[in-house]
């Protein structure tokens, strides 16, 4: 987006209230009526979304919270066997759940340290004028369009120890000693899963960065170059800071995605071998639908929810504050 168009977008938004004021501002009764009517309209418009939100989001959360303090196999009516916080103490004594937390952390760190820089690099590369640029953009974005299940099925074949492409390719370039059983080896399975995750999601982050990069006015970069800044300096002091909001959002999505990771891993490994690739969501699923310990599974989901919530709120409060500030103060101005 160029600066001229940006300004053009903002103008009507500022002009609107000024124009609206004389119409209803004259007599107070009219204004009240107008406001009431607006309130009714707003309520009416909000109602469907609100009802859906309450029914499909709030009620299940509350129900899960309720079920999490019971020992319940999920059969027949409501739970009755109240156990207090037993499910939670059990969870934090279970090596599998503690392992989930550790593995989640590893995935988050790997995502932030490898996947996002990779996406950023590619985005900057693809921002340069070059032949076939649109094709490459499409190519790198394509994996994101595939569903998780298809991706996972694809990669189970890719990583197959007997006839998978991964080992074939390694032996083709003379790196047989690097060939591995990938998903079958408890010590390497997490990295295999991470490779798949990266393949699947880097395109999405790349598109985010690409969009963010195009929002940076060329004038700024030109100015920096005129002042004699080298390519690295331009990147470090102009591009990167101005990409800040995009990077912060992309990191946020990446972390939340890693916390909730389920379908990809489920189809790839079902959490195995011997829990080596299990995530919180998979543990929850196996307890809820495999062992019919719905109370315990609910407790896991509550903890997952709390972790996500605390992270999301903390991130909003401390990291995204600068990005959201503009929007909020803008609203205040209008009022």
């Amino acid at each position: 987006m160029r600066p001229e168009t940006l300004a053009a977008d903002e103008r009507p938004a500022q002009a609107e209230p000024r124009r609206a004021r004389p119409a209803s501002g004259g007599d107070p009764a009219g204004r009240r009526r107008g406001r009431r009517r607006a309130l009714v309209t707003i309520t009416l418009f909000l109602l469907p979304a609100l009802v859906l939100f309450v029914l499909l989001v709030l009620v299940p959360i509350l129900l899960a919270g309720y079920a999490s303090v019971f020992k319940w196999n999920g059969f027949g009516g409501l739970p009755t066997d109240f156990v207090g916080l037993d499910n939670f103490t059990r969870m934090f004594e279970d090596p599998v759940f503690l392992g989930d937390l550790w593995r989640g952390l590893v995935l988050i760190v790997l995502s932030l340290a490898v996947q996002l820089p990779l996406a950023l690099g590619l985005a900057l590369l693809l921002n340069r004028p070059m032949r076939g640029r649109a094709f490459y953009r499409l190519l790198f974005f394509a994996p994101y369009v595939l569903s998780e299940v298809i991706t996972a099925v694809l990669f189970t074949m890719f990583f197959s120890p007997e006839r998978g492409l991964a080992n074939e390719m390694l032996s083709m370039v003379g790196l047989e000693e690097l060939s591995s059983t990938w998903l079958s080896d408890p010590s390497s399975v997490m990295y295999s899963v991470f490779i798949v995750m990266t393949w699947k999601y880097f395109g999405f982050h790349m598109i985010l960065y690409l969009a963010g990069r195009q929002g940076i006015p060329t004038e700024l970069i030109e100015a920096a170059q005129l002042d004699g800044a080298s390519g690295w300096k331009v990147f470090r002091h102009v591009t990167l800071p101005l990409l800040g909001p995009t990077i912060r959002i992309s990191a946020f999505l990446s972390v939340i995605g890693a916390i909730q990771l389920f379908d990809l891993v489920w189809v790839l490994t079902e959490g195995g071998p011997i829990h080596a690739s299990e995530t919180m969501a998979i543990t929850m699923f196996t307890f809820g639908f495999g062992r019919y310990q719905v109370g315990y599974a609910s407790a896991i989901s509550v903890v997952m929810f709390l972790i996500s919530l605390v992270f999301a709120l903390g991130y909003q409060r401390f990291v995204l504050r600068r990005d959201t500030e503009g929007a909020i103060t803008g609203m205040r101005d209008q009022r």
Binding site: M157, W182, L183, P186
Partner: peptide, 24 residues
């Protein structure tokens, strides 16, 4: 057990059943 059995499925093209069928 066959190579990579820890990650093998039962009824997929390179799973347990296929290993028998293919004489592996």
């Amino acid at each position: 057990f066959q190579q990579g059995f820890l990650g093998a499925d039962y009824d997929k093209p390179d799973g347990q059943a296929a290993a028998i069928g293919n004489g592996k």
